[in-house]
């Protein structure tokens, strides 16, 4: 017993139940998926080889990545300006803004997706109003295409971008900006050279969060894409449930997981990830 406690810190005992839970409930299934991707329908690298051979699967992965990049850019830029406005608004207004943000954050993705259909659909509020005013003769096709998917995804992702940015902006010492202005920098210069670099950890956190969450989007592309915007999550679900190509599904899931891990690893080469996730900058 003594020998044991000398090598293993007793603190491990406290986290052991959680640790075991995570390993069995999380790592186990993930390894199972990896295993499946090499063994179904037959052992070997067949599923991965197919990704290279079949243009379709590669195209779906590319569509997903492309949509996620565009979503991330728009969400983070819009989120940045919202967070900026919130930090600099009066206390009262700021709490209003935060409430609105959180309300939209809490509303189910299904409701938000179908709301866009009501608003921007062919016979939606916007198109009908514009037609009644006489501004347009034919309804604008906002929905059931890639534009629709992007609108829905950006809207869903904005709160995820705002929250880390808000935290990061709030922790900035305002006196630094005053010093910058005092030393003769213009407002624009202060923003680009002082403020923006100081918020980089928040920016990176928001980007990572939005991008990674976007990769798994299922409902929004399925509904707002009109069947023409096929992203990996929906494709995986079809392979699991309809075509029974579980090996293909597992392979794609594994690729997405590896992609995300690789992205985190590359980021970690350039910066301390712990600062992004709220750790101390040291």
């Amino acid at each position: 017993m003594h020998a044991l406690t000398r090598h293993i810190h007793p603190g491990w005992l406290i986290i052991a139940p959680l640790f075991l839970l995570v390993v069995t409930l999380y790592l186990g299934p993930i390894l199972n998926i990896l295993w499946l991707s090499f063994t179904d329908p037959e052992p070997g690298l067949g599923n991965y080889a197919k990704l290279g051979q079949e243009g379709a699967q590669l195209r779906i992965v590319w569509t997903t990545v492309r949509i996620c990049i565009i979503t991330t850019i728009f969400s983070v830029v819009l989120g940045y300006s919202i967070a900026y406005a919130m930090v600099h608004a009066h206390r009262q207004q700021k709490s209003y803004m935060l409430t609105l943000l959180l309300v939209s954050f809490w509303i189910s993705i299904l409701v938000r997706t179908f709301a866009w259909l009501m608003l921007l659909g062919r016979k939606g509020l916007v198109n009908v109003t514009l037609e009644d005013i006489g501004l347009i003769a034919e309804p604008i096709t906002f929905m059931r295409n890639e534009l629709g998917v992007l609108i829905g995804m950006v809207h869903y992702m904005i709160p995820y971008a705002v929250l880390p940015l808000l935290v990061s902006m709030q922790s900035i010492d305002q006196r630094v900006m005053n010093a910058s202005r005092n030393l003769g920098a213009s407002g624009t210069q202060t923003f680009w050279r002082i403020y923006l670099p100081l918020t980089t950890p928040g920016l990176v956190a928001a980007t990572l969060l939005v991008f990674i969450l976007s990769l798994g989007f299922y409902v929004t592309p399925a509904v707002l894409g009109g069947g023409k915007v096929l992203m990996v999550a929906e494709y995986i679900s079809v392979q699991l449930l309809v075509t029974l190509k579980w090996g293909t599904a597992a392979m794609l899931a594994a690729i997405m997981l590896m992609g995300v891990l690789a992205m985190l690893w590359i980021m970690s080469r350039f910066m301390k990830l712990s600062t992004v996730f709220g750790g101390a900058t040291r």
Binding site: A56, K228, L230
Partner: peptide, 8 residues
């Protein structure tokens, strides 16, 4: 799968 490939 061939159909999904064709429409997406």
């Amino acid at each position: 799968n061939a159909f999904l490939e064709a429409i997406s």
